[in-house]
Every structure is written in C-alpha cells, then in structure tokens.
Simulated scan of single mutants.
Amino acid sequence: MDVSEIIIPGDTPGTEWRLPVLRFKGRDPKAPKIYIQAALHAGEVPGTALLHFLCERLRRAEDQDRILGGITLVPQANPIGAAQSHFGDLQGRFDLGSRTNFNRDFPLISIADRATLIEELDDYPATDRLKRQLLHMALGADLVLDLHCDDESLQYAYIDEAFWPEASDLAAALDMEAVLLSDGESSAFEEAVGFAWKYEIPGERRSMLPGKLSVTVELRGKRDVDPALAKRDADGLWRFLTARGIVSDEPVAPAAFAGPAAPLDNVEIIRAPEGGAVLFHRTIGDRVVEGQCLATIITRPGQVDGSIDLQAPQDGLILTRTSDRLVRRRGDLMKIVCAGPSKTSREAGTLES
C-alpha cells in the first residue's frame, strides 16, 4: 500500500491542510480501476470506518498478489471541514467561509479536460483546490464511490440513471434498501464525475456509460458507526470488488437487489409547516399508507389547537428521518420513497441543499 499526502495551502498565512491518499497498484492493466472517498461531508464517518477495515483485507490481498485493478482510497476527504467547529459543534457540511456545501460546485468539465483541474491551483481558494484535486483523482478511475450517510436512515444510494441497472450489483453487495435514480443535473461530486464521462466529446451527451460507475452511497445514519456495521459494509464492498474483477477471490454471488429503485420525483419530502417539538409516530423502514399519521408538531404547548398532525401524502417506504426534535418552519423531517411521483414540484438536481 502506497501512502501519500496532498498538501493544500490555507487561505491565511501559516495554515495548510493534509489529505492522505492510499493506493494499491493493480497487476492487470485490463482490470477496472476504482476510486473511493469518504467523509466529504466531514461529520459523516461511517465510510471512514468502512475503509479502515477494507484496507486490512486489501493489504492481505496485496501480500498475496491478488490486487488486479488499481485502487485509490481517500478515507477522510475533507480536512478543511473536519477542522470547522461552531460553539463546539462540527460544521462539516458547509464551508463556513463561502457558505457552500462541500458536495456542490464541483467543476463540470469533459474528461478530455481533466488535466486542467490541477493547473494553476494557486489561483483558487483552499476549498476549490480540494474539490479540483478530488475530482482529478476520481477521473483517473472507471468506478467511483463517494461514501456519505444521512441523519437517521436506511442504507441507500443516489445513482444516475446512466449507470442503472448495471449498478444493481453494488446495491445488492451493500444490502441497500433503496436506490434513488438521479438525473445527473447537479454539481455534486458523483454527478460531476458522470458529467465528465457523458461529455467525453464536448457538446455530445452520452445517455449510457457501460463499464463506468459514479455513485453516492448513504451508509445509514450519522450515529451508525460501530465495528460490526463497518466490517459488514467492508465485506459487502469486498464482494463488489471481487465481482467487478478488481481483486481476486472466490466470487460470492450476492442476492439480487430487491429494494425500490425510484426516480427523485417519487420521493416525498415531509417538511414542518411550523416550528416546534416534533413527535414521530413512524420511523425509518416503516411502510406507510396514504393518510397515515407520521408526526405531530407541538407548536404552542398547552394551548387549544397547539399541535399539528402530518399525514403521509401517498403509500411508501420511510427512507430517512431527522434526528432533531425541535424543528424549524419548513425543516425537512422525512424522505419517503413512493411508487408514484410527488405532487410537490422539484427542480432538476439534488433533493437538498
């Protein structure tokens, strides 16, 4: 295993950030190359734990000459966000300087222009340098996994329709309970990777990308970080690497992916109409029917008509839930995956900011 560091100068004198990169060299030039990063949102660390245990298996495989395809791992992809705290709370999702989500505003370029990402880096602030170098590394691979997690959540993934259903093997290997089929219309990391491949010939868009994969994996919730889960997820990812011919091992065929694969338009986001204390009647993994009570918000405690009940707009599977119990007006409470489209209009791109 080769360990190196990318040094990112800070935007003020005397500061810099160090980005460790772990690489395993493949012995078969025809085997796929894979890039995996975790904790781009710095407080989301289930993927960091997964990669820690996966590396144990990869080192053993390396000693036995069983690494076929090149593997690049970035277990802590955002040292800038990891250093941001506000009154003791980690602020790893948004850059405090620019107020930009660390998983937005990645450059949308053609793969033909990959080299330009790391040219004249001194012209860019630290957060942009970080994003450009992460994207540059990812575009050197065939398969790209960006490991995140939600708040309280089942295991699921955002997968561009250009990679589906080929990517169902990943969904099965990681025991995902749902897949959200994205439209590739945002500047998030995994969609910037897909954009570069789709526009390999500038101005000409490819709708299918066989042999390629760029996915955001949501590894349950923020608190789902323990050795048993991390080892189980590492085993699942190992099965995927074996099936795709990146490592050599006895193949174990995972069960077929059985969860829903729904477009983003079929996701109902339940929001708080007013602020208050939220009392949930249903939790993640529950299947609900239209009209079923999901939550009560106590808006004016002790007063007549001091609470609001929220009902399911249609049948579906509760995929995520907020861990907050004091919520703001229009705050997101739940995501429900449904068979039909939501009546709430949605702009192209991601579900949330």
Rank of each mutant, 00 (worst) to 15 (best):
R330L: 13
L326C: 06
R325Q: 13
S323G: 13
D315T: 03
G331I: 00
K335P: 00
A339D: 15
S323A: 14
S345Y: 05
R321P: 03
G316C: 04
R346M: 12
D315H: 14
E347T: 08
S342L: 03
T320N: 09
M334H: 04
T344A: 12
T350P: 04
L351Y: 02
D332C: 04
I336F: 03
C338I: 05
S323Y: 00
A312S: 15
S345G: 06
D315F: 02
G340C: 04
I318R: 07
D309E: 15
D324L: 13
S345F: 12
S342A: 06
S345R: 14
G349V: 00
S345K: 10
A348D: 05
P341H: 06
C338W: 01
Q314P: 03
P341K: 02
Q311Y: 13
R328A: 14
S342Y: 03
R346E: 05
L333I: 08
G340K: 10
I336S: 09
T322V: 08
R321V: 01
I336V: 14
R329S: 10
L310Y: 01
S323L: 10
I318S: 08
R321G: 08
L333D: 06
S342G: 08
R328L: 10
L319V: 13
D309W: 02
L310I: 15
V327W: 03
I336L: 10
G349P: 07
P341A: 06
T350V: 12
A312L: 05
E347K: 11
R328G: 07
T344F: 00
D332H: 11
R330T: 13
T350Q: 10
G316P: 04
D332K: 01
A348S: 11
T350W: 01
L333T: 11
L326E: 08
L351N: 07
R346C: 01
K343F: 04
Q314K: 09
E347S: 12
T320Q: 10
R325P: 06
D309T: 11
D332F: 02
T350D: 15
T322F: 08
P313T: 09
T350L: 14
G331F: 08
V337R: 01
T322S: 15
K335G: 03
D309P: 00
V327N: 03
I318Q: 03
T344Y: 03
P313W: 01
R346D: 02
L319S: 01
R328T: 02
D315A: 15
G316Q: 02
Q314Y: 00
D315G: 08
G349H: 04
A339G: 12
T320D: 11
C338H: 01
G349R: 08
A312P: 05
Q314L: 03
T320P: 08
R328F: 07
S323K: 10
Q311H: 13
R329D: 08
C338E: 00
